[in-house]
Computed example of a mutant assay.
Amino acid sequence: MGMKYIRQQYGVPAKRGARVRFTPDGNLSMSCDGIIVGTRNGYLRVRMGEERRVRTYHPTWQIEYVS
């Protein structure tokens, strides 16, 4: 399940290198911007800000596609 699957299944513009914003529970003061670096089992792999760690996010749960 790659990027094409995620785009088709969820109707989102997900692609490697795209910018996203994660806003937990709608709390704008806690929002984080990141870059999509890949996929894993139908989920997005995102590197947030300057972190080295890559995190896994559901393509539609509290994610906004910025670019």
Rank of each mutant, 00 (worst) to 15 (best):
G2P: 08
G2L: 06
M3K: 03
M3L: 10
K4I: 05
Y5V: 01
Y5F: 10
Y5I: 03
Y5K: 01
Y5E: 06
Y5P: 01
I6A: 03
I6R: 03
R7W: 02
R7N: 08
Q8M: 03
Q9G: 00
Q9L: 06
Q9T: 15
Q9A: 11
Y10L: 08
Y10P: 08
G11N: 15
V12D: 07
P13I: 00
P13K: 01
A14H: 01
A14P: 02
A14Q: 06
A14V: 08
K15L: 03
K15A: 14
K15E: 13
R16C: 01
G17P: 02
G17T: 01
A18H: 05
A18S: 11
R19C: 00
V20L: 08
V20T: 12
F22V: 07
F22C: 04
P24I: 09
P24W: 07
D25F: 15
N27K: 13
N27L: 13
L28A: 10
L28I: 10
L28G: 03
S29R: 13
M30L: 11
M30E: 05
M30D: 04
S31K: 12
D33Y: 04
G34V: 14
G34T: 14
G34K: 15
G34D: 11
I35H: 02
I35S: 10
I36M: 06
V37E: 14
G38F: 08
G38T: 12
T39M: 09
T39N: 09
T39P: 03
R40K: 13
N41G: 05
N41M: 11
N41E: 10
G42T: 12
G42S: 09
Y43A: 11
Y43G: 02
Y43K: 11
L44C: 10
R45W: 01
V46Y: 12
R47S: 02
R47T: 08
E51P: 00
R52L: 04
R52E: 10
R53E: 08
R53M: 10
R55A: 08
R55W: 12
T56F: 00
Y57C: 01
H58C: 07
P59D: 03
P59H: 01
P59L: 02
Q62S: 14
I63C: 00
E64D: 15
Y65W: 10
V66C: 10
V66R: 15
V66Q: 11
S67C: 14
